[in-house]
């Protein structure tokens, strides 16, 4: 099971990693991205979701998505094969 799929995520954006015991909080944008990644959605699909949900331009959505995925990698929650 990939690291991402093992994470326990609740609707308020609290994330618990049962492997390391670390916990994180994310905002609604982060929550949407992380849930979409868990569902194996492509980057393009996630961008569409972000634009639709938060009524933002493609460029802004793309920047947020890249930033957030880098953060996930930094914390060891996302492996390169996930993206």
């Amino acid at each position: 099971m990939s690291k991402l799929n093992r994470l326990a995520i609740n609707e308020e954006g609290f994330i618990f990693d049962p492997d390391t015991g670390n916990s994180f909080t994310v905002n609604q944008t982060g929550l949407l991205i992380i849930k979409a990644l868990k569902e194996n959605k492509t980057e393009k699909e996630i961008l569409e979701l972000l634009k639709e949900e938060f009524e933002v331009e493609e460029k802004e959505a793309q920047r947020d998505l890249i930033d957030f995925m880098e953060q996930l990698k930094l914390y060891g929650l996302l492996e390169d094969k996930n993206v």
Binding site: F16, P18, D19, T20, G21, S23
Partner: peptide, 8 residues
């Protein structure tokens, strides 16, 4: 404080 983990 501590938390249970399941690190295989």
């Amino acid at each position: 404080t501590g938390v249970t983990i399941k690190n295989e």
